[in-house]
Nucleic acid binder design. Structure first.
Length: 496
RNA sequence: GCCCCUGUCGUCUAGCUUGGUUGAGGACACCGCCCUUUCAAGGCGGCAACACGGGUUCAAAUCCCGUCGGGGGCGCCA
């Protein structure tokens, strides 16, 4: 059987949007699933909107997401070049072929003129289709006109009537009335190929067997099929993915919040989670398991099972998936992922010793189950780094002012010394002693301790909190962590 | 305006091809309970949908027609 070849062909006009990333992902999954080839092609024929920095960014974001291509602008390959801007000759050559065969013709209509025709058509209720005004021009006359410097586009001569049907891998048979498909521009008057022509030439020359792209290309497809036929190129299979929408059911855009892959990265979303989420947007595995890594996704993926209707991007579910993925990553990796966010906030130092890493690893390990994404870690980290009894909640403060509370805290101070480092066993022993001596137990015993230690009535389990604080205190972090004894001491003083 | 795609819980979806196994299943979110002397996590449970109207049929979420809703396209943008 012929080897499957698919491509992702973005135009480098900005940062990569999750909708496009999803298209890339489905292509990639399909390629890997079928042991085929995945190609990255840059569609930069619109000179005004393309920029080199965008291409670099695009490549970086795609790689971060975990999508690797077998052939592309930076990796090379046998069917290159992989930038449309470097393939000009190829388009000219194919266009010339069509001109020679009388299947294409020069069009001298100005954009203004065409725009006027279009408006008139819509106003009078007719379909907005190119009139075919220039298709009757004698080729010799047209050539002369071009040679004397008249700007001309090249258009494909289409039948203008009849029906065209093709079978979409996701949607089944799709039919179009060719009377509504005007003669498309192949080469623009500035010499650059038009999108609809460039894709056909590129996809054929690159040996693409399956064109998997967004639903917004459905109505381009008949035009492209006509072009394939005019060129006597074999037809690939087509599959059109539905769109990704925002919560208000309009096309996902900036005003919906984060939409660029890079924004999710900066927010501390794991690439494996975004990858997983995107795959689940419009596709579901057979047995309903949802937390999946790339390998499992490849195993289960089936293009025919992709949903036909548009899907709304659900930030809640992404967060949930991110939590699931955070749980599975090794603690070293979690610490590494959290570190930049903490450093940014001045909570971790530039230079990290072995000891600090080891501590961070444990700290992140307990904080990670309280957050959705790594950008939230500095706020949780305040449990350690921030301690100001004076800012305590009023009700909590009243609780501490009770005589029994004070007694607990005073006993704690009496029984510990400045230079002693507590571990949890020692802490437990201490609380037992306090209990014996004071007769205070249960909530009356633990609640004041928690308040005095954390400044807050809720938070980490004390058995996790205490050793981390005690060891963190000797780490000399930019924002120093206070020891348990110091915390209780300060709380007591602040009560007066 | 014209053409095309699409319509199952608030959201992502399973089921639809091959009508009865569906009192329509799962997941996120939400609510409740349990666990926990806190919070979160976790466990258990609950709320919640076949857009509407006609057919066909003994039987329709599943097949047909129409209406309505949503989306896309009609570019010398991609």
């Amino acid at each position: 059987m012929e080897k499957i070849r698919v491509r992702f062909a973005p135009s480098p006009t900005g940062y990569i949007h999750v909708g496009n990333a999803r298209t890339a992902l489905f292509n990639w999954l399909f390629a890997r699933k079928n042991r085929g080839v995945f190609i990255l092609r840059i569609e930069d024929t619109d000179i005004e909107r393309s920029a080199e920095t965008y291409e670099k960014k695009l490549i970086e974001d795609l790689r971060w997401l975990g999508i690797e291509w077998d052939e592309g602008p930076d990796t090379g390959g046998a069917r290159g070049p992989y930038r449309q801007s470097e393939r000009g000759d190829l388009y000219q050559e194919q266009a010339q072929k069509l001109m020679n065969g009388g299947k294409a013709y020069y069009c001298f209509c100005s954009p203004d003129e065409l725009e006027r025709e279009r408006r008139d058509a819509v106003a009078s209720g007719r379909p907005a289709v190119y009139s075919g005004k220039c298709r009757g021009l004698a080729p010799e006359d047209a050539r002369k006109k071009v040679e004397t410097g008249n700007p001309a586009a090249v258009r494909l001569r289409t039948p203008g009537r009849g029906m065209l049907t093709y079978n979409d891998l996701i949607r089944g048979p799709l039919s179009f009335d060719l009377a509504l498909t005007g003669d498309p521009v192949l080469i623009r008057s500035n010499g650059m190929p038009a999108y609809n022509f460039a894709v056909v030439v590129d996809d054929t020359l690159m040996g693409i067997t399956h064109v998997i792209r967004g639903e917004d290309h459905i109505s381009n497809t008949p035009r492209q099929i006509l072009t394939y036929e005019a060129l006597s190129f074999p037809l690939p299979s087509f599959a059109h993915l539905s769109m990704v929408m925002g919560p208000d059911n309009t096309r996902l855009s900036k005003r919906h919040g984060a939409t660029a892959v890079d924004q999710f990265r900066q927010d501390g979303i794991l690439s494996s989670a975004l990858f997983n989420y995107l795959a689940l947007l419009g596709w579901a595995p057979p047995d309903g398991e949802e937390v999946l890594d790339a390998g499992r996704l490849i195993e289960l993926f089936r293009l025919e099972k992709v949903s036909r209707s548009a899907a709304i991007f659900d930030y809640d579910k992404l967060n949930w998936l991110n939590r699931q993925h955070m749980k599975t990553i090794p603690s070293k990796e979690a610490a590494r992922a959290a570190y930049p966010f903490l450093k940014e906030e001045g909570l971790m130092p530039e230079n990290m010793t072995e000891e600090r890493w080891e501590w961070l690893e444990r700290a992140v390990g307990v904080l990670i189950e309280r957050i959705n994404r790594f950008s939230e870690i500095p706020a949780e980290f305040e449990l350690f780094s921030k301690f100001s009894p004076s800012e305590m909640d009023h009700a909590d403060r009243e609780d501490l002012k009770m005589e029994s509370s004070r007694k607990v805290l005073r006993l704690f101070i009496e029984k510990t010394s400045e230079d002693e480092k507590l571990d949890f066993d020692r802490f437990s022993a201490l609380t037992q002693e306090i209990k014996q001596e004071s007769g205070i137990k249960g909530k009356d015993l633990y609640h004041p301790l928690r308040l005095a230690l954390t400044g807050c009535s809720s938070g980490l389990d004390l058995d996790k909190f205490i050793p981390l604080v005690e060891e963190g205190a000797s780490l000399h972090l930019p924002k120093s962590i206070k020891s348990c004894r110091q915390r209780i001491f300060e709380t007591l003083n602040n009560l007066e």
